[in-house]
């Protein structure tokens, strides 16, 4: 029986692995579906009003999400959360926007919720009050209202394999390479720090949705010190093994991804955000006509369901069975004798 490698048994490998093309198509289809729904709502609210609205493109959505991803390290630095929390929250945020769109759920609150959820799933819990009191203009309900939605969008798959742990592993395993200088880990500590910076930069990109954590870690190390990276890779894969060329191209593309990942320009994002205010799904804006209509619709449906249930209950006869209710002579079950 062939055994499943541990990583391939993970939900990260099974459910959160994309090719660059599939990523783009997922985002495009999500965007177009959301645009269609919102346009419909606008039209039903006020016919002809949607023609003037310019909806966000998938790239603009991604830009907005990236900006909020870049806020997570700042928050984690403020709260002194470990690296694990930071990386997990970033993964959650990215994964959330592969199931939802920015036009439905604004990333600001989703980011706060993802981070709060990550503190809990990585066993670094913090009280909700301590969390929201230290973030301006945030109430506990901002975080909690979305929590179930976020968890549901993640498919309740909270475990994430991280590149920074793989990098740590490579750094430790480099000490097992034959003829390695014993004190290299201390004398070349700056290489590790530089590689870690590259791993952090990779979090702004889509690298973790396309490549495995160990590939990202090795690429980051190769950016900091190509010699060490090739030394480790050579110790793991003999130079004539068939997987080496593939690995080289993979590493090259990860390096390109990391190099191209920059924190989005705040001005550009602000412009996008302004437009988002206009094209947000009105059903999710409290107080708008569409919101009220949706609420009324939901209530009508719920009422219908209740009526149906009540009707079923009456036609089905006695809930405890007909034998008791319609027995011969009947049972005198009132006590007023």
């Amino acid at each position: 029986m062939a055994k499943t490698p541990l990583y391939e048994a993970s939900t990260q490998f099974k459910n959160w692995r994309y090719s660059p093309d599939s990523l783009a198509s997922v985002r495009a289809s999500l965007n177009s579906a959301a645009v269609a729904v919102i346009r419909n709502t606008f039209e039903s609210d006020e016919p002809g009003s949607s023609s003037a609205v310019s909806f966000l493109t998938p790239d603009e959505e991604l830009l907005l999400v990236r900006l909020y991803i870049s806020k997570i390290p700042q928050l984690c630095g403020f709260f002194h959360f470990p690296e694990e929390v930071e990386a997990t929250a970033v993964s959650y945020l990215k994964r959330f926007y592969l199931k939802n769109t920015v036009m439905d759920w604004h990333p600001k609150n989703v980011m706060l919720t993802a981070l709060f959820l990550a503190t809990k799933t990585t066993n670094n819990p913090i009280s909700l009050e301590a969390y929201t009191n230290n973030i301006p203009k945030t109430s506990p309900s901002d975080v909690l209202d979305l929590e179930f939605l976020v968890a549901q969008s993640l498919g309740f798959e909270f475990a994430v394999w991280h590149a920074h742990r793989a990098l740590w592993g490579i750094w430790l395993d480099l000490q097992s390479v034959p003829d390695a200088p014993r004190n290299r880990a201390t004398t070349h500590a700056d290489i590790y720090d530089a590689a870690l910076q590259h791993v952090r930069a990779s979090r702004l990109s889509d690298a973790e949705l396309v490549y495995t954590p160990s590939q990202i870690a090795l690429a980051s190390l190769s950016m900091a010190s190509p010699d060490l990276a090739s030394e480790w890779a050579a110790s793991k894969f003999p130079p004539d093994s068939p997987s080496v060329p593939g690995l080289q191209t993979t590493l090259a593309s990860i390096r390109a991804l990391i190099e191209s990942s920059v924190v989005p320009n705040v001005e550009a994002v602000r412009a996008v955000d302004l437009r988002l205010k206009l094209c947000k799904n009105p059903e999710k804006v409290v107080g708008s006509k569409a919101y009220l209509a949706k609420k009324a619709e939901d209530e009508r449906k719920a009422e219908e369901k209740r009526m149906k249930k009540a009707a079923e209950a009456t036609t089905e006869g006695d809930p405890f069975g007909d034998e008791l209710a319609g027995g011969p002579g009947g049972i005198d079950d009132d006590d007023d004798d």
């Binding site: 990098l167 954590p213 160990s214 090795l218």
Partner: peptide, 13 residues
């Protein structure tokens, strides 16, 4: 902790 890190370093390369 070390073993977990090293394992994740070689997993999936």
């Amino acid at each position: 902790a070390w073993e977990r890190a090293v394992r994740s370093a070689v997993a999936g390369t």
